[in-house]
Every structure is written in structure tokens, then in C-alpha cells.
């Protein structure tokens, strides 16, 4: 499972950076989405996958049984998803507005007009 996820993460990062390097600003947005998802999956995988072992103390015991899923990375991912969502909403509006103002979606044409 780890290996498959590692390959998926690598693929997502590659696809994300590839989209960022494209000329169209719409693909730039897609690149940002892929990057943030790849990062979330990376946090999930890097901290170790444990299946079917919720971090709950069983009745009668006073500590967690040892192999249990770590809830913290999932909390981190939840935060990162929320932040990523907010940022993405902003980027969408920015790209739309930039398209309206500059009247092109080609990064090469946007290059010269920052003065």
C-alpha cells in the first residue's frame, strides 16, 4: 500500500509542477490543486499507514494498545485541506480577475506588463 501511494504522490507532484509550467493560467490553477493534494497524501503516507486500528482505548484498559493509527496527521491534513481550499478560492478569483484585466490567459504575454 505504501509503495502504491508513494508512486501516486510522485505522479501527482510531477503532474502538478508540469501544469504550473504550462503557459495557460487555468492550468496554473490545476497545478496548484494537484500540488496541495499531493502534499496532503504525502503527510498521510509519511506518518505510516495502520489499517483497522482506531486510536481508542478499549474498555477496561488504561492505555492504547500499541499498533494504532496516529490521528495527528489526519488532523494536520484536515487543517491543510481547509487552508488549501481557501487559498484556491482566492486564486480562482485572482485568475478570473487577471484574465479580465489583462485580457489574455497566456503567461508568456503576461510577462512583460508588470511596469
Amino acid at each position: 500500500m505504501d509503495t502504491i501511494l508513494a508512486i501516486v504522490i510522485g505522479g501527482l507532484f510531477a503532474a502538478g509542477f508540469y501544469s504550473l509550467l504550462r503557459r495557460s493560467i487555468v492550468k496554473l490553477v490545476i497545478g496548484i490543486i494537484l500540488l496541495s493534494n499531493a502534499t496532503n497524501l504525502l503527510i498521510f503516507t509519511a506518518s505510516g499507514l495502520t489499517r483497522g486500528r482506531p486510536p481508542l482505548v478499549i474498555e477496561g484498559a488504561d492505555a492504547l494498545a500499541h499498533p494504532h493509527a496516529d490521528p495527528l496527521p489526519q488532523a494536520l491534513i484536515l487543517t491543510a485541506i481547509v487552508i488549501g481550499f481557501g487559498v484556491l478560492a482566492f486564486v480562482l478569483v485572482l485568475v478570473h480577475r487577471a484574465y479580465q484585466t489583462i485580457e489574455t490567459d497566456d503567461m508568456d504575454k503576461i510577462k512583460g506588463i508588470d511596469t
Binding site: I25, T101, M107, D114
Partner: peptide, 20 residues
């Protein structure tokens, strides 16, 4: 403004890559 939009696109993208 026009220049601001072009500047902001670059600023936002590179900073998001850094955050990721």
C-alpha cells in the same frame, strides 16, 4: 491594476509552491 494583476499571479504561485 494591470501591473498588480501580473505581479500578484507570480507572487501567489511561487509562494504557494513554497507552502506546499
Amino acid at each position: 491594476e494591470r501591473a498588480q494583476m501580473a505581479g500578484a499571479l507570480k507572487y501567489v504561485t511561487l509562494n504557494l509552491v513554497s507552502s506546499a
